[in-house]
């Protein structure tokens, strides 16, 4: 187990308590409590319909919880709208890709700098030195992010024309533009080939080295075993088990419910 995942050392970055979300009669997320330590890669796995994406939507603010609470770095998030959570340092990608399809890859990333512009109000109408500097800075940083995800050659291609794998990587770059402390990645490997998945894992690891905490929701068990410090297994909206990858692999309940014949 990695030293960075030592949650006991201090206050966790994200803490959820008895989180609950219902859709009609379906308890999509039910009594979920967990702590994500600062600097960890925390994976959430489970079969389809286990409530993983609902959990991401609760943390990012797309949904409000019906019960329970969640706090980020000591700040209560329960009623905070999604756009404000970004200012506190929470960013996300989407399971079903939601890029600005008509904008170029570069402009998609630049849009991610929304909360970081340093331009005096009047310079929005009369573009001065601070405006030009901000534009150049955003453009340079956006190019760096595209380079980070291996897409600097595709900067001027409209997002809608990119390949599926490229779109996933672009979503990652766009989310990183908000300079998150906590990055929520929702099923990033869906639709990627093996080489693309490897590239993705490398990036997630280097993000953690840069100090970003990651919550990784994934369907693919093999992928998270390689990269995660802690894994929470969900089933039917509930927490089945939480522990290190080794503990998850050995846990009989998890094997019975989810891994099944895969490991045996």
């Amino acid at each position: 187990m990695s030293a960075t995942a030592d949650g006991a050392a201090g206050e966790p970055l994200l803490r959820t308590q008895e989180l609950q979300k219902n859709f009609g009669g379906v308890k999509a997320v039910s009594e979920i409590s967990f702590d994500v330590p600062m600097g960890a890669i925390f994976a959430v796995i489970g079969p389809n319909g286990a409530g993983k994406s609902t959990l991401i939507n609760l943390i990012s603010g797309v949904y409000r919880p019906d019960a329970g609470s969640l706090s980020f770095d000591g700040v209560d998030l329960s009623t905070m709208p999604a756009h404000l959570r970004v200012r506190f340092g929470i960013a996300r990608t989407f399971q079903k890709i939601r890029l600005f399809r008509q904008l170029t890859a570069l402009d998609n990333v630049i849009a991610g700098f929304h909360v970081h512009h340093k331009i005096p109000a009047w310079q929005y109408l009369v573009h001065g030195a601070a405006f030009t500097a901000d534009r150049r800075r955003c453009r340079d940083q956006a190019m760096q992010l595209l380079e980070f995800v291996g897409m600097s050659g595709r900067a001027h291609v409209p997002a809608g024309s990119l390949s599926y794998g490229e779109q996933r990587m672009l979503e990652l770059a766009r989310a990183l533009a908000t300079k998150p402390r906590l990055l929520l990645i929702d099923e990033p490997a869906a639709g990627l080939n093996a080489a693309e998945v490897d590239g993705l894992l490398d990036r997630i690891r280097s993000l953690r080295h840069g100090g970003t905490t990651v919550i990784l929701v994934e369907h693919n068990m093999d992928l998270v075993m390689n990269v995660a410090d802690r894994i929470m297994v969900m089933e039917y909206g509930r927490r089945l088990f939480e522990g290190t990858p080794a503990e998850v692999q050995k846990n009989p309940a998890v094997i019975a419910a989810y891994l099944g014949g895969e490991l045996l």
């Binding site: 960013a91 909360v115 331009i119």
Partner: peptide
């Protein structure tokens, strides 16, 4: 200016825009 990007982002996808901190 960034206002143009912000408005375009809202036009293209509001949920996505909110995930970037856009009100």
């Amino acid at each position: 200016s960034p206002v143009g990007e912000t408005l375009t982002a809202i036009r293209e996808d509001e949920v996505s825009a909110a995930s970037l901190g856009i009100n």
